[in-house]
């Protein structure tokens, strides 16, 4: 089936089998391998991308459902060499260890901050509860999001 999607600002026309999951379209067809797969049950959120600006789990959508829509993956978050403030904050606050959940966690955080510029700790804990991290215990992730939030309000990009 022919689909047309905008991925990270670029228009892509593709012919996909209806059964192809969005995450496999992104990883295998578009070679954007920053979006990961961690479970088969839409539990872990490693596959999180933004669909028309809203965070979704790309392992539980077919690529055809994204037809005529905009997708942002982790690769589309930074502007060239310049890291997005969330990416910088995750590095500075140690918000990752093995790094596998990180792209999904950052995409969810981007969506969270787009709805709530200054979330409380509790709002962050709830907001990222669709993303599992096995390494950090989440404290450093929460600090990272808080840092990005205050950087943004402080005018840092």
């Amino acid at each position: 089936m022919k689909i047309s999607v905008n991925v990270n600002g670029r228009n892509v026309d593709a012919d996909v089998e209806p059964r192809k999951l969005l995450v496999d379209f992104i990883r295998d067809d578009l070679h954007l391998t920053g979006t990961h797969v961690g479970c088969d049950t839409s539990s872990c959120g490693a596959c999180t991308v933004l669909l028309d600006g809203v965070a979704v789990k790309s392992c539980t959508m077919f690529a055809v459902q994204a037809n005529n829509r905009n997708i942002t993956t982790i690769e589309g978050l930074s502007k060239g060499d310049e890291l997005h403030r969330l990416q910088s904050a995750f590095i500075e606050e140690g918000g990752l260890q093995c790094g596998y959940c990180t792209p999904g966690m950052i995409m969810t955080s981007a969506w969270l901050l787009s709805n709530n510029a200054a979330p409380t700790e509790e709002e962050i804990r709830n907001g990222i509860s669709g993303n599992l991290c096995r390494c950090t215990g989440y404290d450093s992730i929460i600090r990272s999001i808080q840092k990005a939030s205050s950087d943004r309000r402080g005018g840092r990009k």
Binding site: I74, L83, Q87
Partner: peptide, 16 residues
């Protein structure tokens, strides 16, 4: 740095 690769989605896990 590994951490920068990971936050950019440039990790090279076996599936990648």
């Amino acid at each position: 740095e590994a951490t920068e690769r990971f936050v950019r989605g440039k990790g090279r896990y076996v599936g990648d």
